[in-house]
Lab assay of single mutants.
Amino acid sequence: MDVFMKGLSKAKEGVVAAAEKTKQGVAEAAGKTKEGVLYVGSKTKEGVVHGVATVAEKTKEQVTNVGGAVVTGVTAVAQKTVEGAGSIAAATGFVKKDQLGKNEEGAPQEGILEDMPVDPDNEAYEMPSEEGYQDYEPEA
């Protein structure tokens, strides 16, 4: 019985440690998101679009440190934060509304985080759909 109880105690310690790591990862992701939003706020009209992409990228980098179902929630929060940063930029006159959601080359930025393969159960990952990809044929 002692062996059984000791095993359960060790398992509990492992769960607590994993929860603490997840909590730490979420806190880091939130900190990076805040950094990115402050970065966007300090940019001029020309830099705002690039700044919004930076927020998304920093958040995406930190999301990889967070495991399990938390990833889905962090990704949703990050996307809403990026959308909010863009709205703030438009409201303050840093950028025109028609410039939001495009990178410096004018290509749409939507789907940055949505296409990231995420499995809350950590069982399997699927690649994003290939609808947006084109076949590449090298020139002879």
Rank of each mutant, 00 (worst) to 15 (best):
T92M: 04
Y39E: 02
D2T: 03
T33W: 13
D119Q: 12
A90E: 04
G73K: 11
Q109G: 03
S42L: 14
K6G: 01
A27L: 14
E83M: 09
G84L: 11
D135I: 12
E20Y: 12
V49I: 13
A53I: 12
G106P: 11
E104H: 06
E13C: 05
A19Y: 15
T59A: 12
T59C: 11
A107C: 05
K10Y: 04
D119L: 09
L100T: 06
A19G: 02
E139H: 08
A56E: 01
A56M: 14
V77F: 14
E28M: 09
T54E: 02
I88F: 02
P117N: 12
A124D: 15
Y133Q: 07
M5H: 00
I88Y: 13
P138G: 11
K102N: 15
A30H: 02
L38Y: 12
D115H: 11
A29T: 04
D115E: 12
E137K: 04
V63R: 03
V63E: 01
K96M: 13
L100A: 13
P128L: 10
E28D: 05
D2K: 02
G93Q: 04
D119C: 12
G73S: 14
A27P: 00
T81I: 06
K97S: 11
G14S: 14
V63A: 04
A17I: 05
G106Y: 12
G106K: 08
F4G: 00
D135A: 03
I112P: 09
M127P: 04
A140P: 12
Y125I: 13
Q109F: 11
E13G: 04
E137F: 09
D115T: 09
E131K: 07
T64D: 05
V118E: 08
E110G: 07
L38M: 13
A53R: 04
Y125W: 07
Y136L: 10
G106T: 05
H50A: 13
T81D: 02
L113M: 07
V77K: 02
E13T: 05
N122C: 06
G111V: 15
E104T: 09
E139Y: 12
P138S: 08
E57H: 05
G101H: 09
K23P: 00
E123K: 09
A17R: 07
K43G: 01
D2Q: 11
T33E: 00
G7T: 10
V71E: 02
V49C: 13
K80I: 06
Q99R: 05
A19M: 07
G14P: 01
K21I: 10
P117D: 07
G31R: 12
